[in-house]
Design a protein around this nucleic acid. Structure first.
Lengths: 219, 219
DNA sequence: ACCTGAACACCGTTCAAGT
DNA sequence: ACCTGAACACCGTTCAAGT
């Protein structure tokens, strides 16, 4: 009898799963940021002891990698390959980049999290692989396509990280009221994206113009 | 008498300065990596108690920022403005980018360090400001020049971070003997740099061709 | 001026033991 | 199978007190 009462009070409220632990981790991330996402704090949020977490995840690194995978590996990038018919490589690349940006910005410190548990490792880097394929279909060779996709990824990741670092400064109150002393990140993203896409376009036409000497550059 | 002996043994070996603390910090960084660069470890390396460090630097963040500034703010970027005469914006941008890459790769985890204590904040972002000026002289407006410089910086930083993350994996022995399953980072850098520079060139000619409608894009 | 000694409030991780 | 309890080996930072 007493035991039952004790269980109602102190017993497990509900058995946890990998998914519920991940959910709790995202809750802390979004509310308090990556710096405050500690194993002990997460355990407290979930109502268990710190050690209990290690039944679900081998270590913190694995947990963070799973979070990064969830951000970067959402179905948005694996979506119907030819959903929009033959729109060409440029709008496709633009779409993947924009969606990756949105995915990174959807969670507080999302870019830092993904950059830390590197998104570029195979398997998780779904947007990277998607970009590489699109660029290959645009006519670039394997090496060039990989380098171009990496360049695009670095830009998107760096841009999102910069935006979120700026968010963090504002939260800390260390900014002069903002408005636009840091002139419009959306416009900067659009411009940067156009620059990279134009650069890829230039390399494509260079290859198409002189297939035997891919080193030649358009002037 | 005993006091003198005691001082010879346990007294200060040599008064520390901000510079010597920085030097010790770089020594640990290069030998053991950023993860092992702790205030306690640094104090031990310098032969003082952990608390003693806080006379020289307000906190760890300030120390790391000073290290990032030293990497990113070396004189290499402020060098003679017209040392190479009128070589044009492209080789100038190429030079600054290449030197920034070298500076980041010169210290273990240099890219991560610079990315964390953001190199993009004014004052420390000397390469960023240098790039912006060069691009402005190439004909782009303030906003476009800033966006282009940020794009270039994100590429260089992201590339270097990727290279060093790869180095770390190899050190941990978690890689299949390397050779070139990760095909030549130097070539990937050259290709990525050309892509971004071509993109900037495209934007320049778009502006020059139609100054009143800078939205038009070269085809 | 520069540092010690000692404490405070944290970390991630392990592991026997409980249920 | 899933978690507790308790420990281990760390952190960054503060601050009175020494010299």
């Amino acid at each position: 009898m007493f035991k039952l009462a004790a269980e109602l009070r102190y017993g497990q409220a509900m058995r946890l799963s990998r998914e519920s632990v991940l959910k709790g981790a995202f809750a802390i991330l979004d509310r308090y940021g990556l710096a405050d996402l500690t194993m002990r704090r997460l355990a407290a949020e979930l109502g268990i002891q710190p050690g209990g977490l290690y039944w679900h995840f081998a270590n913190k690194q694995t947990l963070l990698a799973a979070m990064a995978d969830q951000i970067t590996g959402s179905d948005r990038f694996t979506e119907p390959d030819r959903f929009m018919g033959e729109t060409g490589w440029r709008p496709e690349l633009q779409m993947v980049s924009t969606r990756l940006r949105s995915a990174l910005l959807a969670h507080r410190d999302g870019a830092e999290l993904v950059a830390a548990g590197y998104a570029l490792r195979p398997g998780s880097g779904q947007p990277l692989e998607r970009m590489t394929k699109i660029i290959q279909q645009a006519g670039l060779g394997d090496h060039d396509a990989a380098a171009a996709a990496a360049t695009l990824t670095h830009f998107v990741l760096g841009h999102a990280a910069e935006v979120q670092a700026h968010d963090q400064l504002r939260r800390a109150g260390a900014l002069p009221d903002d408005h636009d002393q840091f002139p419009d990140p959306d416009a900067a993203f659009t411009t940067g994206l156009e620059i990279v896409l134009d650069g890829i376009a230039a390399r494509c036409s260079a290859v198409n113009a002189a297939p035997s000497t891919p080193r030649s550059r358009a002037r």
